[in-house]
Amino acid sequence: MLSEQELLEGCIRENPRVQEQLYKQYASRMFALCLRYSSSRMEAEDTLHEGFMRVFQSIGRYTSTGSFEGWIKRIMINSCLKKYHANKHMYLKQTNIEDFGQLNEEYHPTGYDKLQVTDLLDMVQKLAPGFRLVFNLYALEGYNHKEIGEMLDISEGTSKSQLSRARQILQKMLGYEKHQTTDV
């Protein structure tokens, strides 16, 4: 396996074998990330394609100040955000929050060990695009509401509200109410 430096130098020289090696090395992790940010597998494939194209085209600008994987990850997230901004006008129909009740702050999800990763992914993908992005950026990437607001061009309050709603929906999907009733 090539070192990170060798990968960088090879990709700058546009060596196709090294480009393929870089793709193989990071594709699985990045595809998992794209799946979390997309509503379907096909959309995730498109985002992965666009993201890696941007990686190869702008690899000369990587300054080695942060981790290389972090830089690729950031490009992938930006590709997801770009896709979101481009299709924002299509997302008028948001998920009806009222259908999912109120968020229980004391809720501790347990007993979900048998739940498959694909099930969780499926739940995230079912979220409305805005909710999905905010949830991913806050809960999984660790951005704060101010940063998310700047990324998505929304207010900090909207970010908080969307996160709360995303959690409600996921809680509902996890079957919290049913789970609670059964326990009682």
């Binding site: 595809f31 992965l48 394609h49 990763v117 969780l120 999984l140 996921l170």
Partner: peptide, 29 residues
Amino acid sequence: HPVDDLFYDRLITNEAKPPLNVWGRIRNG
């Protein structure tokens, strides 16, 4: 929120193999 933790723990290290045609499209691109 605990919901965050559940998804974080299970998804953050997840890997998924992309279909073969994606690299083909990148290479063609």
